[in-house]
Design a protein around this nucleic acid. Structure first.
Lengths: 229, 229
DNA sequence: AATATACTGTGTATTTTTTACACTAAGTAA
DNA sequence: TTACTTAGTGTAAAAAATACACAGTATATT
């Protein structure tokens, strides 16, 4: 019964838009390709899906190979399948976005063969990208813009302990607009999903802010699902 | 340069969740398979993607072959790629939902080879499905539940001219809950995206209701994008 | 012609949510 | 001690969401 399906030359790949927040900036991880096609171009990190791994597994592996990180929040968001999107054959790619805290040193040293360079680049400075990666990136950004309003994904971009100002920064950067400080705090605290840690920031010039933690338990309890941040 | 990618046995397919509304019920189109694997099981309509067509083109074609309809509203929503989801090999499937008015006679006579039967089945009576189609269907339903709140997809399920009661029915069926008549009408009319046609329903027992039309022009003008229906 | 039937269409008061807006408090650095 | 920088806080007005019930009207029936 195995292998009775028609066959033609086709493969699938995964491409990742890796968002990272590091105290002030929203960035994505780009690699500089070292191989044809699109040698020397910037591109989204990605790779082919292996025969024995699911899409999710593949995405997790690719991210690990690139950053050395596990347990990163990832979400599939769209499949791109234009016939000529890859010059070497038919490649349907499934796009994932990942959200990641760039606390301090954790800036990943990428280790991929076909990349000669990898950098965290501000979302406002993204250069021209290889293949249809421009489109893939834009759709990814769009997705998290929507999703951040209804699901608690902002916390994935922050360290475990964070200040309200940092949380607000994440929202402002993702949504691309300024928010009112008092209204933002009122709303966030009213949800009751932030745990006040009775603890202050350390090692900071000027007045230290209170640290909070996302209370996942309360979140899943209180709301089955639907919120509007 | 062509064909220098690694190759293993893999194909992609499209599966569609075709939603239809016919004056009172929300249904999906299911086919009864006439071939192994899963012979005699109910399944979502779907097929393999051809070598020279994009995912969107393929979805459009498959829908056309099945229903004879063109210009149907379709939207890709997720790729399913578990290793063993298909017993005959590695098949990654890209899922689309489609929304469709089932006005009167237009009930499609499906013409697929491997289907011995096709039926519109109420979303509440969906039987056990072949492959991982249960999961695909559920995710599709979830998607339109979310999307109907922010985008004007309800109108795709209705005839061009519809009554407010019909519109409300669509919302109630998709969301799976009753809505308040007065509040619903107030809200919908306030958006200003419904054109009062100064025309009444015909061929209906009892009092005829006013007919409305979705004003696409006003919709795209007034809101760049974000609404909450 | 009268009546029963079944659906259409409408308003208001209350509560909740959202918005707009500016200064004092606290801690650090010099 | 002072200058600097960020943290932290409240209120009033506007807008949106909710809860709620009955009279109007076209049709079908007798």
């Amino acid at each position: 019964m195995k292998n009775t399906l028609p066959q033609f030359y086709s493969v699938f790949s995964i491409d990742c838009v890796l968002f990272g927040f590091d105290g002030g900036e929203l960035k994505i991880l780009l690699i500089e390709r070292n191989e044809e096609p699109f040698k020397d171009w910037w591109a989204l990190p990605g790779n082919l899906v292996a025969q024995d791994e699911s899409l999710d597994e593949s995405a997790t592996r690719i991210l690990y190979e690139l950053t050395g990180l596990k347990g990163v929040y990832m979400e599939q968001y769209y499949a791109f399948g234009d016939v000529d999107r890859h010059p070497q054959g038919r490649v349907v790619t499934v796009a994932y976005y990942a959200l990641l805290r760039l606390s301090g040193d954790k800036t990943p040293k990428p280790v991929s063969d076909f990349a000669k360079n990898a950098q965290w680049i501000n979302v406002n400075d993204v250069p021209k990208l290889a293949f249809d990666h421009q489109k893939i990136y834009e759709k990814g950004l769009e997705k998290i813009k929507r999703r951040i309003k209804h699901q608690p994904i902002a916390f994935e971009l922050l360290p475990e302990k964070f200040t309200l100002t940092q949380l607000q920064q994440v929202y402002e950067l993702v949504l691309g607009k300024k928010l009112d400080k008092r209204n933002f705090r009122k709303k966030m605290l009213n949800f009751g999903i932030l745990k006040d840690l009775d603890e202050k920031q350390k090692g900071v010039s000027f007045r230290a802010a209170t640290l909070y933690k996302f209370d996942k338990r309360k979140y899943t309890k209180l709301f089955g699902k639907e919120i509007s941040f």
